[in-house]
Computed example of a mutant assay.
Amino acid sequence: MLPAKRYAEGLIKLAQEEGKLENFYEDLFRIYDLFKTNREFVDILFDHKMKVSEKKEKIKQFLDLKLDKYIVNLVYLLIDKRREILLPYIPFYYKEMYDKIMGNVDVEVIVSEEVDEGILSKISNWLLKRYGVKNPRFKVKVDKSIIGGVKLLFNNIEVDATIKGALDSIKKELIHNAM
């Protein structure tokens, strides 16, 4: 098991005990945003010549006062153990476990034209009945080539209920039967 995943598992267990699943999720991604946007933060964090105590003091200035004390302690623990490299990976392992607990599923919805909330609500109900998806997070993409209908992509599953998909299926069947 990857070390970053072990830290994320520990955080998930702690978050469940403390009733802070969502707080930890948000805080971990605030720190991840620091990685993406603040070069000084990254330079300090990965400066291996700097003493641990000095590094923790300098990193303290970047850690938002709104961050949960457990998340701040995680950052300090990683610095103490010289495992700073794991910090940008932990949020993604945490997200994976968090989504599983919360029943969140990212669903890509591909349609020929924009859809309203009513259609997404119907898709949501269908996903719950058919696949047990409790909380779909929809990402709608418009693709004029599919003519009509809808294509859903989630959890390595593809549901193709498009006119283009039906025509392609008929085409394959005709070619197969002609041979």
Rank of each mutant, 00 (worst) to 15 (best):
K172Y: 12
F92W: 13
F138T: 04
S112V: 15
K20F: 03
K134W: 00
Y70W: 09
E158A: 13
S112Y: 14
L2D: 14
L65R: 15
F41I: 00
V150I: 12
S145Q: 12
E108M: 05
Y70H: 15
L77E: 01
G19E: 04
P136W: 05
Y94W: 04
L11A: 03
L127Q: 08
K151P: 04
L152F: 09
K13M: 08
Y94V: 12
V140I: 10
K60C: 02
S53A: 10
L174H: 06
N156Y: 09
I146G: 04
N125C: 00
V75R: 00
V133Y: 01
D116F: 00
L65D: 15
K129T: 10
V52P: 10
A178F: 14
V72Y: 02
I163K: 07
E108T: 10
K81F: 01
I175C: 08
G149P: 04
L87T: 06
I146W: 07
R130M: 15
A166W: 11
K69A: 09
M179E: 13
N38V: 07
V142T: 13
A161T: 08
G149I: 02
L153D: 09
D106Q: 07
L21Y: 02
F41E: 00
E113P: 00
P91V: 07
K81G: 02
L174V: 11
K69R: 13
I123M: 08
P136V: 06
E84N: 01
R130P: 09
G149F: 02
E57L: 11
Y7K: 04
S121D: 14
D99L: 00
D68I: 00
I85L: 14
A166H: 14
V105C: 05
I175Q: 08
D47V: 01
Y7W: 09
M50A: 10
I31T: 05
N23Q: 14
F46I: 05
S121Y: 13
E54Q: 13
V75L: 04
K171A: 12
N156E: 12
L87R: 05
Y94Q: 04
M97L: 15
D143E: 12
Y76P: 03
V111Y: 09
M1K: 03
K122Y: 00
K56N: 08
G165Y: 06
K55Y: 07
V142A: 12
A15R: 06
V105G: 04
I170Y: 06
K141Y: 14
D160Y: 11
L65I: 12
I90Y: 08
W126M: 11
L28R: 01
K58G: 00
T37H: 08
Y93H: 10
R6P: 07
I12Y: 07
F92Q: 05
L86E: 10
I71C: 01
S121R: 15
K95W: 05
G19N: 10
G118T: 10
L128G: 03
T162V: 09
N156R: 13
Y70V: 08
F41T: 00
